[in-house]
Every structure is written in C-alpha cells, then in structure tokens.
Design a protein around this nucleic acid. Sequence first.
DNA 1: AGCACTGTTTACAT
DNA 2: TATGTAAACAGTGC
Length: 274
Amino acid sequence: MPELPEVETVCRRLRPFVSGKTIANVEVLDAKIIRGHEPEIWKQQLLDETIQDVERRGKFILFKLTNGYLVSHLRMEGKFFPHDEMVNPVKHTHVVFTFTDGTTLHYNDVRKFGTMELKTNDDLYVTPPLSLLALEPFDSGVTAETLHTRLKRMNVRAIKTALLDQSIFVGLGNIYVDETLFRAGVHPTRPSASLSLDEVRLVHQEAVAVLTEAIERGGSTIRSYTNPDGASGTYQETLYVYGQTGEPCKRCGRPIEKMKLGGRGTHYCPHCQQ
DNA sequence: AGCACTGTTTACAT
DNA sequence: TATGTAAACAGTGC
C-alpha cells in the first residue's frame, strides 16, 4: 500500500497525537509483526518510554523514544489508528499501545507484512534497514548528476526496477514510479545506463514533483489505503497511467497499456514513452 | 472454484 | 556480485 507520500501523511497525523505520550502498556496480538526481539522483551523495553517525536525515513516511520527508536514499516497494508480511549481490537489488529493518559494507538495489518523493530540511537542509521537507504529524495545531495552516475552503474537494469530500488532512490513505489516515468516520457524497460543526463534530469524532476504533489493530496487511495483517520487520499484522481489500462492517454489519446516488469504490474503509454 | 492480482521488501537460487 | 523469482499473507475480482 503505502509509498513515501502515504507514509508522510501517516507521520504528520501521528506526530501530534503521540508526541509527549508515555507508553503504559503494549499488547502484541500477533508476534509476527515484531522483529529483532522476542515480543515480551520488546514490550518490556517500550514500557515507560516517552515518544518524543515521529519522523519518516523513506517509507519507514520512526517513533523517537526516550531511549532509541521504534522503527515501523507498513509494507502493503499496515495502518495505525489513534483512539481517544480504549477500543476493542478488530479482526486485523495486531498491536495495541496504551498511553498513560488513556489514549491508545492500534496497529492493523490485513496481510501481516508490516514490521516493528526497536533500534538504539547508535544502531539506527548504521544497521539495516535504514543503513541500506539512499538519501531522502528532497535532500540537496540528490541531484540529476548523482542519480545519473548511480544509474550508469546499474547498466542493464530496467529504469523502473532501478528507481524502485530504495538503495538507489528513496520513496517511489509502484504507483509513483509509473507516474514519474510517464511524466518524464521514459519507457519503463529502458536500460538505466542508457538514459542521458538530460533524461535523468527530467526523471529526477518529475519524481520529486510527483512525490510532492502526492503528499499535498494526502496520498493515493486505489483500493485500501486510508490515513489514520480512515480518510482516503485524492492523488488517485490525477493519475496518468497507474490503473488506467485501456483508458485514453491524457496526452495523446491512445490507450494506456499494462505489462509485467520485475514481477510488478507496469502501466505506460507506448506512444508517449518510447 | 480456482487463479491471478494487489501502494513492499527480502531470502534464496542461478 | 548481481539479477530474477518466490515467499511472507489475506482479500478481491474475474
């Protein structure tokens, strides 16, 4: 489900809700979500911790604690729901945090792909998964030149596959990578090393624009994504190619096509993306 | 009914 | 080493 814009939307909602709150209890209803520690140990480490802030790194949510960080990844279907009081868990609720003020935070995840892991301050950025990420896409260190160099090194990989690789470029997922390539006029199967610097410039510019616009619209709701308040995003209303198979291209009017690339459904306009 | 598909990542085979 | 595939899981739609 969530790519960078959805995760950013979730973080912005959770930040004011949990910041300054102290964890009074944690119920782990499905241990599969917890990584790195036995659930009981994990829980003990969280008790009495105060959440200082909520940060985002790539598609990860970072709860900054008094000691260390709780790192969460929503994968396909993970969702956090804040509540002002105790609420009964529902079918796919796997973790429930209760704060000392009586408010609660539920983690729901239909497919149980999501993860939560505790990290020390020292380990956070120097151990996986965060150590594997490229810089944030909005970081001034990410330029067309640096991206061009990295894509050159990938020589034969399809540009779409390379852009989905979070160690190459952070934040794009299957929706936004298809949108980025359409807007840049680049065919998804193009070998990454074959892109000129000017083409990479365009790809970079469109990637940042797509992510920025999607954040402004609260992300995309295609089938199941909602923000922590249960509301949908609106970026899906502006999509050029994702999920538009057979629909006329908004630029040239010819039908959008869909193919399989690297195991992912890939939407593109064969006329606008050569 | 059964199979293919799904906003992600990674473990494992080649 | 690097790249492609399968797997983690549940639900939906054809």
